[in-house]
Design a protein around this nucleic acid. Structure first.
Length: 916
RNA sequence: GGGCGGUUAGCUCAGUCGGUUGGAGCGCUUGCCUUACAAGCAAGAGGCCAUUGGUUCGAGUCCAAUACCGCCCACCA
């Protein structure tokens, strides 16, 4: 009735696991069987994650590898728990970044976007995206990400574009989007406005120039301090603090702006810090955010002297057409000639840089679109206060909240071509402004068909903010939106908490009336082995694809060749390194850890598979009464592992999850249980069948628990197990699920029936005896073949009760000829002794001991115990300890003291016997 | 200027509610190619838990200060 044993099984199982051979096959299988696809199913609980959409220009870096590994672990775990899981994938059009990339490729052809025009340029970007935009998606698949690839979205596809227009028009009608002439951050190189968050502040060495402005009345002068003399042509006032006694009489007077010889008023404004510089500030409303505010308060003229191209404008007089930095030099020269520079002071200050191209950002006065943030941010704050959003690690909540509390209006218009065009049209006739979902045919006010659409596009982050609901079909009321929203958890890096997390929260609450996700997990940043952020210029990056597939990579000026570690190794290693969102210092060699673990488990699997195929009746689920102590022990440990792993994953403790499984799988299963199983397997008969069944069952559960972290390897072994096991009737204990990805997570409650603290304690004692014997062998360099006759002398009878039933196991594992037990046996002559918790282990040896070495070791052990004894004695004589510590702690300490004293006594005796 | 994180073995890091003798991986030492695995097995060495003070019967763990390293925010020109 049973199928024949699979042919040549052993031949198909190489000693070295080969991820590069296995992983592509397993991936193809998953993709072919559409294993990651999810559909709304009202019979199950939803569990959705939206991917932080990588930029279409991006290629997979270690940060992505980490971030997506963690998401995949969560989603696979949830899927196995029987939830209806959707991991929504996609990419972001990344406005400025992508435009820059395509502009560079144009430049290689000697072209500029202005030369080919907007329409053609945008077409070029789409072509570029068609060609290269799926690179990162392919790479995510290779990493093993179980996204629902059928649902892949792009922030500029039709559906999402519609959502963007819908949101824009709706916010516009609510008065939450407005157009205004404001001082915004301008990137001279990208030629566009930026939001406050897109400006990076970098500390730079600079100078603070003190410049003398003559007074019009000829009575002296006033000295202002500035770091930006090139903006002087735009000065329209000089300001002092109203309470500054030094300058009180200056207020109301008129100063002469040097170089320009323009008359400007001296005003008083509380914004001026009397303690900084000279206490006098030049006011340039068109080129400084503070000055802009002062200018509004005092009704000052705004003179733009630096243009959008970074060149001085005509308003800068003789400096016009000069680059702003050349203008600075020229103005300083001229001032020096006029002897108007009172002093020059070294000054460290923060300079704003564009986050996309690093060029210095200019405050620039222009007409832009803004989102009124206060009402939206308040909703997000409210949701947090109501506990609807939980951060892990929790400290990020404060960071997030403080941004929301201090947020200013968001400049959303960009003067680039790649992005969502602002859905606003202007009437050429009556200048009416029309916001609409589709291009209107005619002006609603005057009926003129002469309409021009706003040339600007929206900030990339505007569309990303809608991602959790736009990808589910909003504004349509789709089954997906209804079922999966709100999503469960967002996994992301801390640098986009403001850009993305906060804005998704605001938009989600505003348009869906519910948080877009209940939890946010902030993963750490991957650093190189020296603790530096990875970057192209530093050549310190580690390419995950090279780690996965092997290959060459340049690092620190040298080219290195790497073997293939495999996606599982990369994933598992990253998982073990993820502790509480801490940053991760990474070196390529770290992946050896994951590789070695997987190889170890591969070999354990080989062993189980081969033995299973050789053992008649192996794989039937054994009856409880047939189980050996070893079996009951491994089942108890397994139950602990399953419960631990589940709890750790649910609490996002990735490192603890990985460690729990590692310790069980390698430590308990491989190091001990496999060895204990061998004698049973070799003995054949029913006992072998029982053992084979437990081996299969345990391996099966290890595969399930490990699957979220190492999906490829576990899926491969699962298939092999399915090939071997049905022939042995293993359907009893394994469902006939062909794909592990769809199999169920081990049932913690059912497993908990196997927990058995007594067995674990007994086995622990037995293992200590085994270790003691091995220790003796190692210490005296005994040949492995030398058979020993070992005596175990227990301090108490209950110890014997624990250990005697495990005598066979101890004998096998310690490789001893004979093993005898007793309580407080007399120490034989000429014996090696190990003192362990609760017993002495004696191994008679004649003439093999190095007495001196042994004496030194004993002295060391003894003094350690005496120290411990003294500490404990002091503690147990302390009335306060006895009075205040919990009784169980006191009891434990007493027991420990007893054991320590016993061991110290034995050691002393041992030492003395050496003397003779 | 404000905030956050870190400091534990030679290296990289864990350490959950304060309670036995503080752990892992790598590296190191010794012995093993033991029919699952040398990417391995067995045994071992290696710690003033940054410093100081406090709370507590008891502190790597809680509190305060200090030092050093790193990150974020901020309109002192």
């Amino acid at each position: 009735m049973s199928d024949p044993i699979p042919p040549n099984l052993a031949d198909r199982l190489p000693k070295h696991y080969s991820p590069s051979e296995v992983e592509p096959r397993r991936l193809q299988d998953w993709l072919d069987s559409n294993a990651f696809h999810s559909v709304p199913d009202s019979g199950r609980h939803p569990y959705a994650i939206v991917i932080p959409p990588p930029n279409v220009t991006g290629i997979l870096h270690m940060g992505h590898a980490l971030n997506n590994t963690l998401q995949d672990i969560l989603i696979r775990h949830a899927r196995m728990r029987g939830l209806e899981t959707l991991w929504m994938p996609g990419t972001d059009h990344a406005g400025i970044a992508t435009q820059n990339v395509v502009e560079r490729s144009l430049a290689d052809e000697g072209l500029h976007r202005n030369a080919i025009g907007r329409e053609k340029f945008v077409r070029r970007v789409w072509e570029w995206r068609e060609k290269y935009g799926s690179t990162i998606i392919t790479q995510l698949k290779r990493l093993g990400c179980s996204c629902d690839w059928e649902r892949e979205r792009f922030t500029m596809d039709d559906g999402l574009s519609r959502a963007v227009r819908e949101v824009f028009v709706s916010l516009y009608r609510e008065g939450l989007i407005y157009r205004g002439r404001r001082l915004i951050n301008w990137c001279v190189r990208c030629h566009t406005a930026l939001s406050d968050d897109e400006v990076e502040h970098v500390e730079r060495e600079g100078k603070l120039w003190h410049i003398r402005y003559r007074l019009k009345n000829g009575r002296g002068s006033v000295v202002v301090a500035t770091t930006r003399p090139e903006t002087m042509p735009g000065d329209t006032a000089v300001a002092v603090h109203p309470d500054d006694a030094r300058y009180r009489n200056l207020v109301g007077q008129t100063a002469i702006l040097p170089i320009m010889n323009r008359e400007i008023p001296v005003i008083a404004d509380a914004m001026v810090d009397p303690g900084f510089g000279s206490g006098v500030l030049k006011i340039t409303p068109a080129h400084d955010p503070n000055d802009f505010e002062v200018g509004l308060r005092h009704d000052l003229e705004q003179i733009t002297v630096i243009g959008p191209d970074g060149m001085m404008t005509a308003a800068a007089g003789k400096y016009s057409r000069l680059d702003r930095f050349r203008a600075r030099d020229k103005i300083l020269e001229d001032l020096a000639e006029l002897k108007a520079i009172a002093q020059t002071v070294e000054h460290r200050h923060a300079v704003g840089q564009c986050y996309r191209c690093d060029s210095p950002v200019e405050p620039f006065l222009s007409e832009q679109w803004f989102v009124r943030m206060r009402p939206l941010a308040d909703k997000a704050i409210q949701a947090s206060k109501e506990g609807k959003l939980k951060f892990t690690p929790s400290r990020w909540e404060r960071v997030y909240l403080s941004w929301l509390e201090n947020v200013r209006d968001w400049c959303i218009s960009r003067q680039i071509w790649w992005g969502h065009r602002i859905p606003v049209w202007y009437c050429g006739q009556c200048h009416e402004m029309i916001a609409a979902l589709e291009a209107p045919a005619a002006c609603g006010k005057c009926g003129s068909p002469n309409l021009v659409q706003d040339p600007d596009v929206l900030d990339t982050w505007f569309s990303s903010a809608l991602w959790p609901f736009s990808t589910l079909g909003w504004p349509d009321k789709t089954p997906e939106l209804d079922f999966y929203y709100p999503t469960e958890v967002l996994v992301t890096a801390r640098d986009i908490i403001y850009f993305w997390v906060a804005r998704m929260m605001m938009m989600g609450l505003h348009f869906m009336g519910e948080v877009p996700f209940r939890q946010v997990y902030i993963n750490g940043t991957i650093l190189d082995e020296n603790g530096a952020r990875m970057s192209k210029t530093k050549e310190n990056g580690i390419d995950p694809l090279v780690m996965i597939q092997g290959g060459k990579q340049r690092r620190f000026g040298k080219e290195y060749a790497y073997d293939s570690y495999g996606a599982d190794s990369v994933r598992y290693t990253l998982c073990t390194l993820t502790t509480d969102g801490q940053d991760i210092k990474l070196a390529p060699s770290r992946f050896e850890m994951g590789r070695n673990f997987i190889n170890k488990m591969w070999n354990a699997s080989r062993f189980v598979l081969i033995r299973l195929s050789e053992t008649p009746a192996g794989g039937d689920m054994p009856k409880a009464s047939d189980l050996s102590l070893a079996d009951r022990w491994i089942l108890s440990r397994l139950a602990a592992c399953v419960a631990g792993a589940s709890g750790q994953l649910e609490a996002f403790r990735f490192h603890e999850y990985a460690r729990t499984v590692y310790e069980f799988a390698w430590g308990d299963f491989c190091d001990w249980y496999l060895e204990m199983a061998k004698p049973y397997l070799n003995q054949g008969g029913p006992a072998a069948g029982v053992t084979a069944g437990i081996l299969a069952w345990t391996l099966d559960n290890i595969l399930r628990v490990l699957h979220p972290a190492t999906p490829f390897f576990t899926e491969e072994v699962w298939r092999l197990l399915a090939e071997v096991a049905p022939a042995r009737g293993l359907e009893d204990i394994r469902p006939a699920e062909p794909l592990l990805i769809r199999a169920s997570w081990p049932d913690c409650e059912a497993a908990s029936r196997w927990r058995d603290p007594a067995i674990e304690r007994d086995m622990d004692r037995a293992m200590n005896i085994v270790r003691a014997v091995r220790n003796i062998r190692a210490k005296f360099n005994l040949p492995p073949k030398l058979r020993l006759a070992v005596l175990v002398s227990a301090a108490k009878a209950d110890y014997l009760e624990s250990v005697v039933p495990l005598g066979m196991m101890i004998r096998d594992q310690a490789g001893v000829e004979s093993l005898d037990f007793g309580v407080n046996l007399e120490k034989p002559r000429q014996t090696a002794t190990e003192i362990i918790d609760g017993a002495q282990v004696y191994a008679p040896l004649s003439g093999l001991m190095n007495v001196e070495v042994e004496r030194l070791r004993i002295e060391k052990e003894l003094s350690k115990r005496l120290r411990g004894r003294d500490d404990l004695n002091r503690k147990l004589h302390n009335l306060e300890f006895l009075g205040k510590a919990p009784a169980e702690v006191v009891e434990r300490e007493k027991a420990r003291l007893g054991e320590l004293m016993r061991q110290a006594g034995e050691l002393t005796e041992l030492r003395d016997s050496l003397e003779s």
